[in-house]
Design a protein around this nucleic acid. Structure first.
Lengths: 106, 106
DNA sequence: TATATGTGCAATTATTCGGTTGCGCAAATT
DNA sequence: AATTTGCGCAACCGAATAATTGCACATATA
């Protein structure tokens, strides 16, 4: 299944997990302790987060530390950037309109 | 049903709709023309976007113009801000570590 | 070696999601 | 007044989602 970042952050539990491991890389068990759901459920969320590259694994013996992939978080920022540009353009157009009005006035 | 912004932007069609009306407010029919889905399907997406306040309506006779609520888009930006702060803190801590190492060296 | 621990994976279930179709209603058009 | 147009709403359907439970397997620990 093809996942994207926006699907990754859609679930509130997953956003909480992201926030947790943003501060410190953690194992599934350690993460699960912070929630009232089972470890397996957390593991599934981690799988989804891994699929959309929001999270990276680091193996250490039998433990697996999950850590946030900051670069992928930037994808969201990038998407938002689009709208900032659109709004800027809007304002520029508004400026032009005002300028034209001013010209026609005199 | 309680919706949040992240659920709103989770679906690719909805993101496309958001982008469309970001440029110009549009009616459901006009929006639907840009996709291969039915008007009713688009209407459902608009309903969801309205529920999470990402979109506002403006009635004009029997037509309804949907426009983007930029303020709500900022919610996403706000959420991302958290992580930027966490990362900054991380870097500051790294600075401290390097500083401590430097001190111990001499 | 036997046991405990950390993990992923498969099967199951209830719920939600995205879509279609059909309908009713109010506003425009004829 | 009759018809067309734009819209929301409800019923329905197949697919995806989130969560639970049970299991298998590798790595520590006794």
């Amino acid at each position: 299944m093809r996942r994207d970042v926006f699907q990754g952050i859609a679930d509130p539990t997953r956003r909480a997990i992201i926030l947790l491991i943003a501060m410190q890389a953690m194992t599934p068990n350690a993460i699960a302790e912070h929630f009232k759901t089972s470890r397996q459920a957390v593991s599934k969320h981690l799988q989804i987060l891994t699929e959309c590259k929001l999270v990276k694994q680091e193996h250490s013996g039998r433990e697996i530390y999950y850590q946030l992939n900051g670069a992928k978080m930037a994808d969201i920022d990038k998407w938002l950037e689009q709208f900032k540009k659109i709004w800027e353009t809007r304002f520029n157009q508004l400026d032009e309109v005002l300028l034209t009005m001013k010209k026609n006035k005199k």
